[in-house]
């Protein structure tokens, strides 16, 4: 019985994670001819990825976009999480729950909602016009890169708040009291104790957000319009419209490498140098 459980525990990740990844990797070395897959190994897909003037710039722009999303999410989530940890008892968790509730809602519905806020007749434009900041509604916020940036940030911010909150909450209060006791001001205590000890949380938050953002093709598809073209959309089109699975697989491998790197970097900085005081 226990042997079966152990076997399953190893077999399930192998069957559902490693095998599909391996199939992808293998497919990326095949090619397509007239709509049928040619099962002969070739490096053609990778050569195309690196030489075609379209793919690399989009790939790079997408990475920059997702890094921006991660940075903005951190900048917004850190003060929020810090504020949460200053609350007492029940309020702290009640508010945290409220901030995490959006995670329970359908992803597509959230994108629709955000699109209608950002749109030409949306809340954002109406508010800006009413306040006199804009003369007339702007198309700056929807169907372009800005829209993707704003939408991804809004969608992913709960993923940044949670790890930062947890790492802040894990800092023993006596460390902060010890810092006070040794003569540090509130700001010094924050900069020299709280902030460095919460960096692991920041690193996990950043890698979460980055990985989720870079893998997303639905958001750019729905709010990106023509100018908001991301790597995820190219990938999607290779499997859907273009029906070039081997090339899609090669692009996926490139994306997977970036994702794995992001996770490794997050892991490297997410580790604490021994939390026990």
């Amino acid at each position: 019985m226990s042997l079966l459980v152990t076997a399953l525990a190893f077999a399930l990740p192998v069957i559902f994670v490693l095998v599909p990844l391996a199939i992808f990797l293998v497919y990326s070395f095949f090619s397509v001819d007239q709509g049928t897959i040619v099962y002969a190994p070739t490096l053609g897909n990778y050569a195309r990825f690196f030489t075609d003037p379209i793919f690399l710039p989009v790939f790079w722009n997408t990475i920059v976009l997702c890094l921006s999303v991660a940075i903005i999410c951190i900048l917004l989530a850190y003060p929020t999480a810090y504020f949460l940890t200053t609350l007492k008892g029940r309020w702290r968790y009640a508010l945290l729950m409220l901030l995490l509730v959006p995670l329970l809602m359908s992803y597509v519905i959230k994108i629709y909602a955000i699109r209608s806020i950002l749109g030409l007749n949306g809340f954002l434009n109406k508010a800006l016009v009413t306040l006199g900041i804009l003369e007339q509604p702007s198309t700056l916020f929807v169907f372009n890169m800005n829209a993707i940036l704003l939408t991804l940030t809004l969608l992913l911010i709960p993923f940044a708040i949670l790890p930062i909150f947890l790492s802040l909450e894990r800092i023993p209060q006596t460390l902060l009291r010890a810092s006070d006791d040794l003569g540090a001001s509130g700001l010094q205590t924050f900069l020299r104790i709280t902030l460095p000890l919460s960096l692991p949380g920041v690193a996990s938050a950043a890698s979460f957000v980055f990985v989720l953002a870079i893998g997303d093709f639905l958001t750019p598809q729905m709010v990106g319009g023509i100018s908001g073209f991301t790597f995820g959309r190219i990938l999607y089109s290779q499997f859907g419209t273009a029906y070039n699975w081997p090339f899609g697989a090669a692009l996926s491998v490139a994306l997977a490498i970036v994702v794995i790197l992001a996770i490794l970097i997050g892991e490297r900085f997410g580790r604490n140098r021994g939390t026990s005081a």
């Binding site: 023993p172 006596t174 460390l175 021994g274 939390t275 005081a277």
Partner: peptide
């Protein structure tokens, strides 16, 4: 305030800064 008092404490769990 605590950071002005010319006293220092050795805490029960030491409270050393782990980083």
């Amino acid at each position: 305030p605590i950071n002005r008092r010319p006293f220092n404490t050795v805490f029960q769990d030491y409270a050393l800064f782990p980083h």
